[in-house]
Amino acid sequence: MHPLATLPKTPEPGRRLTGVTADPEAPVASRWSSWSAPLVAIAVGLLLWQAVVWSAWKPEWVLPGPRPVMLRLWSELRSGEVFAAARITLGRAALGFVIAVLCGTSLGIAMSKLRFVRNALSGVIAGLQTMPSVVWFPLAILLFQLGETGIQFVIVLGAAPSIAVGLVSAVDHVPPLLERVGRTMGARGFTLFRRVVFPAALPGYVAGLKQGWAFSWRSLMAGELMVFMADKPSIGARLHFARELSDAEGLLAWMIVVLSIGIVVDLAVFGRIEHSLRARRGLSEER
C-alpha cells in the first residue's frame, strides 16, 4: 500500500471511484465483445443448421431450414400467438416458482438452523434434486387429474429442493467470523439470521434460485407436453399440436420461443441480480 494512503484526511484519493463506477475505457471493448460473441455463435449455429438441411439428410418437411422457421416464428409473433401462449406458460411458471421459493426457502432455513431437520432431510432432498421431475407426472395426474394443480405440484417438487440446498450450502459458507461479530454486537436468534447470516449468504441463495428456476422451467415444459389442456393454448400445447400435425416448421419455431425465454430470464433477471449483488460487494471480476 502506498504510504500516502494512510494519511487520515485524504485516504487514497485514486481509489474512490473504483468498484461501482467503471473505468471509462475498458467497457467499450468488452461490451462490444459481449454482444458480438453470442451473435457469432448464433450465426455459426444457423449456418450449421442450414448445412444439414442442404445435405438433404432428411426431407425438408421433416427438417426445414432456418429461413422458413424464422418466417413462421415472425408470423406467430405478428399474430400475437406467441404472446398469448407465453402469457399462459409464464403465468404458470411464475406461480409455481413463487410457491417453490416459499417452500424451498422455509425448508432451507429450517435445515440450516435445526440440526435434526437437516440430518433427517438432507439425504431425501439430495435424492429429490437428482430425480427427473417427469417421474412425478403419473402420480400428479392420478392425484389431481389433468389440470393446473398437477402442473404446479411438479414444478414445486422440481424447484424447491435445489432452492433449499442452495440456501443451506450458502449458509454453510458464511464466514464464521461474521456470525461471531454479529453476536458480539447483540444480534441473537432469528435477528442474527435475518440481519447477518442471510445477507452474507445472499449470493449463494440467488445461485440456488437460478437453478431452481431452471428446474421449474424444465418441469413446466414437460408438464405442458404431458398434461395438456385443449382450452389453454400454452407453449407446451403448441409443441404438442405441431407434433400431432407433423408441422415441423411450427415445432422448431416454438422450440426457439422456449429457448429464447430461457435465455432472457437467465440473463435479464438472474444475471442482473447476480451482477449487482457482486458489484456491491466488490466481487465482480471486471470493474
Binding site: 464466514p175 467470523l177 461479530v181 458480539t184 454486537m185 447483540g186 445477507p199 460487494r281
Partner: peptide, 28 residues
C-alpha cells in the same frame, strides 16, 4: 457484552460504512 475487534475487520460487505457503524446501535 464487551465490544470486540478482530484482525480481519469483519465488516459486513453488503452494508455501507455508515450502516456498518450503525449496526450495533440498531441491535440495541
Amino acid at each position: 457484552q464487551p465490544a470486540v475487534m478482530f484482525q480481519d475487520s469483519a465488516l459486513f460487505p453488503w452494508l455501507t460504512v455508515a450502516e456498518n457503524v450503525a449496526f450495533p446501535m440498531e441491535m440495541h
